[in-house]
Amino acid sequence: MSPEELTDDERALRDRLIAEADEHGNAIVEVAGDEYSGPYTFSVGAWRRFGVPEAVVIGLPQDMGATLVNAYVRRAAAGQRFLTGVRYKDFFSGVPVVLERVYRGWYLEYFGSAFLVHPKGDFPAVQLIVPTSDVVWPWHPHAPEGFARWQPILTESGRPESWTPGVNGP
């Protein structure tokens, strides 16, 4: 959809997202959870501004989600390269974060308003995955009941695909 085809509300949101990304490096969109799924936070504009994948985190409280996504974009924009399946222990004190590529089939659901800036969906995206406070990942057999539903893995299979859990990843 071209900018001319947008409604006034869509055009205003697009302009706000671009202005925020131009000023801060990326815009943040936060979506509340419900009884079926956790809240999620995603970036808009990181790809446009810095050529780094947009990011999403699911299941964290609002402020924590925005803090994590902003930290990822800031570090990636500064030149840090992130690998999928690697535990990064310096985002939150004592709690690791791992990245996985997002399957394009999830883009509309989890990056909907990013399509106002990237109408063709031609941007890469990564998911920032956070374990429980006891460092149990959503795919682990001992994960708390409902954790995998609260923080789904946005690959085609719903499980890590860039690494093998317990072999070359968490």
Score class of each variant (00 low, 15 high):
Pro119His: 06
Glu4Ala: 10
Ala125Ile: 02
Glu10Asp: 09
Arg101Met: 11
Leu108Phe: 01
Asp9Ile: 13
Val86Lys: 15
Ala32Asn: 09
Arg48Thr: 07
Arg74Val: 04
Arg81Gly: 08
Ile28His: 06
Phe92Ala: 13
Thr164Phe: 10
Glu23Asn: 13
Ala148Lys: 12
Leu99His: 06
Tyr40Cys: 10
Met64Lys: 11
Ile129Val: 14
Gly94Lys: 04
Leu13His: 00
Val52Phe: 00
Val52Cys: 07
Glu23Ser: 08
Pro160Tyr: 08
Val31Thr: 14
Trp137Val: 11
Leu116Thr: 06
Tyr110Ser: 09
Asp63Gln: 11
Arg87Ile: 08
Pro160Glu: 01
Ala114Leu: 02
Ala114Glu: 05
Arg149Thr: 15
Ala71Pro: 00
Glu20Ser: 11
Ser162Thr: 04
Glu145Lys: 15
Glu54Trp: 01
Phe92Ser: 08
Asp122His: 08
Leu128Tyr: 07
Pro3Gln: 07
Arg75Asp: 04
Val69Ala: 08
Gly166Met: 06
Gly45Cys: 04
Arg14Met: 04
Glu54Asn: 01
Ala78Ser: 15
Thr164Gly: 00
Glu20Val: 05
Gly79Ile: 10
Pro96Ala: 05
Gly121Glu: 00
Leu13Arg: 11
Ala143Arg: 13
Glu156Tyr: 08
Ala78Leu: 10
Val102Thr: 01
His24Ser: 09
Gly166Thr: 04
Tyr72Ile: 13
Asp90Leu: 05
Trp137Asp: 11
Pro61Thr: 11
Glu5Cys: 02
Asp90Thr: 12
Ile28Val: 08
Tyr36Ile: 07
Val126Lys: 10
Ala143Val: 06
Pro152Tyr: 01
Arg81Asp: 12
Ile129Ala: 00
Gly45Lys: 03
Ala32Lys: 05
Glu5Pro: 04
Arg87Val: 07
Gly94Val: 10
Glu30Asp: 12
Phe147Lys: 12
Val86Arg: 09
Val130Pro: 03
Phe50Tyr: 12
Val29Glu: 09
Ser2Met: 06
Phe111Glu: 02
Ala55Ser: 14
Asp134Ala: 11
